[in-house]
């Protein structure tokens, strides 16, 4: 599976252990998140083996959402060696996400 669905305990392990990671904070009741889902899936497939592409359901992982100050969804946060290097709030075209990934790979 190219897009990981992470909970709190998996988050540190997967995101911190990867040189570059991109995490989509989303929820089932959010229309824009549904719209973004295929874009994230696509990026996950393209960057398989190069970067961790993951999703966090903010409803099930409220502590993670709070820890990263996610206040609007979808929010996509980019990590390098476990440290946040940028975030994009709201739905954006695929290129907006891949540019950030490419610049950090």
């Amino acid at each position: 599976m190219s897009v990981l669905h992470l909970n709190e305990s998996e988050f540190n392990e997967k995101v911190n252990s990867s040189p570059v990671a991109m995490v989509d904070f989303w929820a089932t009741w959010c229309g824009p998140c549904k719209m973004l889902a295929p874009v994230i899936e696509d990026i996950g497939a393209k960057y398989d083996g190069k970067a961790v592409v993951a999703k966090v359901d903010v409803d099930e992982n409220q502590a993670l959402a709070a820890k990263y100050g996610v206040m609007s969804i979808p929010t996509v946060i980019f990590f390098k060696d476990g440290k946040e290097i940028g975030r994009k709030v709201g739905v954006q075209p695929a290129s907006a996400y891949t540019q950030t990934l490419d610049a950090n790979l």
Binding site: C30, G31, A65, M71, S72
Partner: peptide
């Protein structure tokens, strides 16, 4: 403050508050 407290969609972001 968009995405840092400003929201246009109650059904999207309400749960976070």
């Amino acid at each position: 403050f968009l995405g840092r407290g400003v929201s246009y969609c109650a059904t999207c972001d309400g749960m976070l508050y």
